[in-house]
């Protein structure tokens, strides 16, 4: 845990000093004048999750504010990824997984029987730990979502969606002349940005990110972090991260999970400067994890 966290930081301070500064100031701005007008995009109440007999999450209550970045941190196996996967019902695909409690997006219950999970997932995009481009061309990777959801009337419109998504993911310049080459041929960082482009092509309202930088090198990580900061203007983002520096850099709100319990959730600078729980303090100072 210490190794993991320290290495990116030292490299980062050389490679991306600017990024850290902007992230920190940006976050302060929102904190100062955004507190009152923040609306809640998603909320979880009394959430329990079981894998078979084993309980993974215990009574989680958490609000995700709109157009901001919420970071979920905590040691391995603490349930942060499980929580994230509840938000777009990805846990449905796991055998023996049971979710009790209440999760709402814009006041509507996402575990409602009448709710269409396909529609839900179009509203809540997800980016995974390991870049997972489909074994198709770059273009087809991004066009896949709009195609299945029928978002484009014709080819031109589809082209436009693909271009703008790649543009917003900061990838267009690098791949504009090889949109037909396979997405798996890109570098790790590019692949992850492709996956982000793929997610935003469906114009979701929320983007979930499950340790999106853990398989990337520091420079690629810096790129993604910048991108997350830009995306915040249009999307609500929830990010799981192992890396506390990353949480500090990109998020406005941080939730600390431990052994399936939400220990503490607060504005990011509060958590990192004056945590109220000693477990949080122990974790962020590197005493365990």
């Amino acid at each position: 845990m210490n190794m993991e966290n320290n290495r990116p930081e030292t490299v980062k301070s050389v490679a991306g000093g600017m990024a850290i500064d902007t992230a920190v100031t940006g976050e302060k701005n929102l904190k100062m004048d955004g507190t009152e007008e923040t609306t809640i995009k998603m909320s979880a109440r009394n959430l329990d999750v079981f894998y078979g007999e084993k309980q993974a999450l215990f009574g989680i209550d958490l609000d995700v504010p709109e157009q901001s970045v919420t970071a979920l941190i905590g040691p391995s196996g603490c349930g942060k990824s499980t929580f994230l996967r509840c938000l777009n019902r990805m846990n449905d695909t796991i055998d023996g997984c049971r979710v009790d409690g209440d999760i709402r997006i814009d006041q509507s219950d996402i575990y409602d029987r009448a709710l269409d999970v396909v529609e839900l997932r179009a509203r809540i995009g997800m980016v995974f730990q390991k870049p997972n481009p489909f074994p198709k061309s770059i273009y087809d990777n991004v066009a896949y979502g709009p195609k299945i959801h029928g978002l484009a009337q014709d080819k031109d419109e589809l082209d436009e969606i693909v271009r703008s998504s790649l543009e917003r993911a900061g990838l267009l310049k690098e791949v504009v002349d090889r949109l037909d080459s396979p997405g798996t041929g890109l570098s790790g960082g590019q692949q992850q940005r492709l996956c982000i482009a793929r997610a935003i092509a469906v114009s979701p309202e929320v983007i979930l990110m499950d340790e999106p930088c853990s398989a990337l090198d520091p420079i690629a990580t810096a790129h993604i972090e910048e991108l997350i900061d830009e995306l915040r203007e249009n999307f609500t983002i929830v990010i799981v991260t192992h890396n506390m520096q990353q949480a500090a850099r990109v998020s406005q709100q941080t939730a600390f999970f431990h052994l399936g319990i939400l220990v503490e959730c607060n504005a990011t600078n509060e958590i990192f400067t004056s945590p109220s729980d000693e477990r949080t303090q122990g974790y962020i100072t590197g005493r365990y994890g």
Binding site: A122, K130, Y144
Partner: peptide, 27 residues
Amino acid sequence: VPQTLRDGSFALGATHSETVRQVIIPA
């Protein structure tokens, strides 16, 4: 076929058959 590809497709809101036909079978 890695589970991550399935997850990627589901997360975009694809139905199961769309995932099978357009992601798993090509892969």
